[in-house]
């Protein structure tokens, strides 16, 4: 009886979990690199962040607002989490669910940061937040926080109709 009850509870809960949860793709740098090297009409916003990073969490709503404004254009937002892989279930996924994050989130998990930080951008010292905005004609890299207006201004300038 107890088992049957558990099964009922699980089957009742499980679909909801699947529907709500964003599937977080975990990538190493080799798998990640093509995302910052595309050469097409789409304007990409690539934001490096983590749930434990106070200024990142503070600017995240701006990125979410921008994403909902531009998502129907030639535009793609990717939030690249640098959370510890071991804390994906305990920190990252609950955070995304609680904040209702709609932009795509991927987890970049690659310990050899000394090598790949400079491959993202030569000037990046490794602190987050850091953001790349680019398409085939434009490129900008920012180490530090961005405001809604700064994001919107750059994207409006870059976006290709």
């Amino acid at each position: 009886m107890k088992i049957l009850f558990s099964l009922l509870v699980i089957s009742a809960l499980f679909p909801a979990i699947i529907v709500d949860a964003q599937v977080i793709k975990v990538v190493n740098f080799e798998e990640f690199q093509p995302i910052i090297q595309k050469n097409n009409d789409t304007t990409y916003v690539i934001n490096f962040w983590a749930t434990w990073c106070i200024p990142c969490v503070k600017e995240l709503p701006y990125f979410e607002d921008i994403n909902s404004e531009f998502k129907d254009r030639k535009f793609k937002m990717i939030l690249v989490s640098l959370d510890f892989k071991s804390q994906m279930e305990s920190s990252l996924i609950p955070f995304i669910e609680k904040k209702n994050i709609e932009s795509e989130v991927i987890l970049l998990s690659d310990p050899d940061a000394n090598t790949w930080i400079s491959m993202v951008n030569e000037d990046w010292t490794g602190s987050i937040p850091a953001t790349i905005i680019y398409n085939k004609d434009h490129y900008s890299f920012t180490e530090g926080s961005l405001t809604y207006n700064e994001l919107k201004e750059t994207i409006t300038k870059y976006i290709i109709e």
């Binding site: 434990w52 106070i54 200024p55 940061a113 000394n114 400079s118 490794g126 602190s127 987050i128 937040p129």
Partner: peptide
């Protein structure tokens, strides 16, 4: 000289 990810100094 090496680089690492870290928290920004506030």
């Amino acid at each position: 000289f090496t680089k690492a990810i870290g928290c920004t100094i506030k």
